[in-house]
Design a protein around this nucleic acid. Structure first.
Length: 657
RNA sequence: GGGCCCGUAGCUCAGCCAGGAUAGAGCGCCGGCCUGCGGAGCCGGAGGUCCCGGGUUCAAAUCCCGGCGGGCCCGCCA
């Protein structure tokens, strides 16, 4: 693969390798990665393109003659590299001026031969990796938070695959547990399961769930208030105001479907003990003692997933394996975990329930370090089962983790799960280690992401307060359509709509992976669809421009007629070549560090430079054949990188928009 | 009460783990230019106590300690 050659001569690799080799020959021991990462882009006015603060590595060298000798040797070695024009020592830095003509030759050859694979440097240590993502509970429709999850998960999977890993994607269907039982209870209260045809099924189920959940909460809270009335005081007033708020939620829910609401309200209020009815459904499903409940639950979940899959398909997201939580229980995998726990030295009884004492594991320094445990915080004991024998989410998650590792013979499992589940995810890893599943415990990665907020909107699935992802997609497409109608009024209607869909979807995905996962993200539709800057449409547009310049030329790129000296004639051409040479490096870094946002920042910058370049340095009208060949190759290179990045980010590639 | 994450220009964000030159982009704002390979154009400018206070270091946005502000978590929920 020619991409490897580009990777090797990319400035951080080249300079890092050279510096490290010389330092090592002088018995200066430094981490090659630290050296490589000290290489940074510098302003041209510093006399080069990339620089490295060399003095920080020469601290231990006391003799200044010796220092000079080392610096000079590094400079000489760098100068002997074909892609280096000059290297100088300035104010503690070694600055490298690149020979962009030689660099261009290497980059163009790679683009020419690797094409759609250009930039996808293969790892030297391929692994088997499971990426679990989306995994929304099948009780309400997907919303913007799930969209961040699926965009990150799908992008990571594509990124790791392109890097040469074997990747499997999985979705965990949480069909056991209380939430599901609440929805099933609601459906049962309606008498028969007959969802309306004119509403998307997951949206309707979400409404039933929200109404049922809130009604049950209100009844429970009312009893509580009743009980506290005599006593009065702070607690009573708090519960009372909580009840007020819930009543307001109920009123809003009723507006959405009065008939459905009234039917549920009447049925539930005539149930003497809804909490017990829900618990009973949960038991019947988990212990599989009531085939009717099993069938109904499965049918509801299947229906809800149909809705999810439709939304995911629109987002361009595909998951390979769908795992049912209930299958883990029924296949006795969860029972086995419980059994193993009982035999483990960490087993304990906590508040009368079987549990694992995880705090004692914290004392092991290896575990504390590898799992990055908080120091002055005692991990609470993990309760494994309810007193009625039903299992708990975390216990089932332990079994599921083992399943994921086993079935794919995975080296690593990446769970894309909200940051609010940090403690739970930590407990899973600790529990695995406690039960002797060390490989699993140490190689389970919680890829945590923070919440997505939409200005002026608070969200709660239990209360039915959310903007669904479907609505968001529609809004994005509608907004995109307005722009497309403005720009391309002559295109046929159906084509404009197709373009608008590709633009809308791309815009949502781009903005959801553009911010580092551990930061809270504010989603702004207008910004996501800003056609002018830092957005998927902007990248799609830039691609289309590059593509159409090449289409206008109409012939194959004359690779063999390129005059490489053209590279040095224009600053923007130089910058583009250097940026193009950085693509494999950025790609590898994004994959290895699980940071898709690096790719987003990179591609945005490349588009900026390209958009600045082509209007002022005409490609097709270039009279000199060799120079025109160079410009065509450069355009092809940019087009290729844009396309190869969009493919990873799941942004549809369009030839016109 | 404890733990985790975040805090950088008016706004949205890079940079922080792996300390180094004058802290970067984009939006917005101000002032100019422009008839284009698809105007979704170009050039210039202003704008910063890198949340605060200590410490380590030749050197701190970056590391350590102590605060402040925001979010999340600490359930026989998921």
């Amino acid at each position: 693969m020619h991409t490897e050659k580009v990777y090797d001569v990319s400035p951080p690799k080249l300079i890092g390798r050279t510096v490290h080799a010389v330092l090592t020959s002088y018995n200066i021991d430094v981490d090659p990665l630290v050296v490589e990462r000290s290489v940074s882009e510098i302003p041209r006015s510093y006399g080069g393109d990339y620089g490295i603060p060399i003095m920080r590595f020469l601290r231990q060298v006391k003799d200044s003659q010796e220092k000079n000798k080392i610096v000079n040797e590094i400079i000489e070695r760098l100068k002997s590299e074909p892609t280096v024009r000059n290297a100088v020592f300035v104010r503690g830095y070694i600055n490298v001026d690149l020979d962009v003509s030689s660099l261009a030759k290497i980059v163009f050859e790679a683009v020419r031969h690797d094409g759609k694979e250009y930039g996808y440097v293969k790892t030297s240590r391929p692994q088997r990796i499971v990426v679990e993502h989306t995994s929304a509970n099948p009780v309400h429709p997907l919303h913007i938070g799930h969209a961040r999850n699926m965009s990150l998960g799908d992008t990571l999977a594509k990124l790791l695959r392109a890097r040469g890993h074997k990747v499997q994607t999985r979705y965990y269907i949480n069909d056991a547990g209380r939430q599901m039982a609440v929805l099933v209870y609601g459906i049962k209260m309606l008498g028969s399961y007959s969802p309306p045809k004119n509403v998307k099924i997951d949206h309707w189920l979400g409404l039933v769930y929200a109404i049922t959940h809130t009604l049950v909460d209100v009844l429970t809270l009312k009893k509580e208030v009743e009980r506290l009335r005599e006593k009065g005081g702070e607690e009573y007033r708090e519960k009372l105001s909580e009840l007020d708020k819930l009543m307001a939620v109920l009123a809003r829910l009723r507006e959405r479907d009065p008939a459905l609401f009234d039917k549920l309200a009447q049925a539930i209020s005539s149930d003497p003990n809804p909490e017990e009815s829900i618990a009973e459904i949960m038991r019947k499903y988990e212990f599989r003692t009531d085939e009717e409940i099993v069938k109904l639950t499965r049918r509801i979940v299947e229906d809800c997933l149909k809705g999810f899959k439709e939304t995911m398909r629109r987002m361009g997201v595909d998951v390979e394996v769908w795992d049912w939580e209930s299958d883990l229980i029924w296949s006795s995998m969860v029972a086995k975990i419980l059994e193993e726990a009982r035999k483990s030295p960490y087993f304990t009884i906590h508040k009368g329930a079987p549990a694992l004492n995880l705090a004692s594991l914290q004392e092991d320094p290896e575990i504390a370090e590898k799992l990055e445990l908080p120091k002055s915080f005692k991990i609470p004991s993990l309760i494994l089962a309810r007193s009625d024998g039903t299992t708990l989410y975390t216990t089932r998650d332990i079994a599921y983790t083992i399943k994921k590792f086993r079935e794919f013979k995975a080296d690593k499992v990446i769970n894309v799960i909200a940051a609010e589940q940090r403690l739970e995810q930590l407990q899973v890893r600790l529990a695995l280690i406690a039960l002797g599943y060390k490989h699993e415990g140490f190689n389970l990665i919680h890829y945590a992401y923070e919440m997505v907020s939409i200005p002026g909107m608070s969200m709660s699935g239990r209360r039915g307060e959310y903007i669904t992802l479907d609505e968001l997609i529609e809004a994005a497409i509608k907004r995109a359509r307005e722009e497309v109608d403005k720009r391309q009024p002559d295109l046929p209607e159906d084509e404009r709509q197709k373009i608008a869909e590709a633009v809308g979807i791309g815009a949502v995905r781009y903005s959801l992976v553009s911010v580092a996962a551990q930061k809270p993200l504010t989603f702004n539709l207008e910004e996501a669809l800003n056609f002018e800057r830092n957005s998927a449409p902007y990248i799609q547009y830039t691609y289309a421009r590059a593509h159409n310049i090449l289409a206008k030329y109409g012939k194959p790129i004359p690779w063999d007629q390129i005059d490489y000296s053209a590279a040095e004639e224009n600053e923007l051409r130089r910058t583009l070549v250097i940026q193009a040479s950085m693509f494999p490096y950025i790609f590898a870094k994004a994959a290895d560090e699980l940071k898709p946002e690096l790719l987003v920042a990179y591609i945005n910058r490349l588009a900026d430079v390209f958009n600045k370049w082509y209007p002022q340095d005409h490609v097709i009208r270039e009279p000199d054949e060799g120079k025109r060949a160079f410009k065509l190759a450069l355009t092809k290179t940019v087009e290729t990188i844009l396309e190869n990045t969009m493919r990873i980010l799941g942004i549809p590639v369009l030839e016109r928009l």
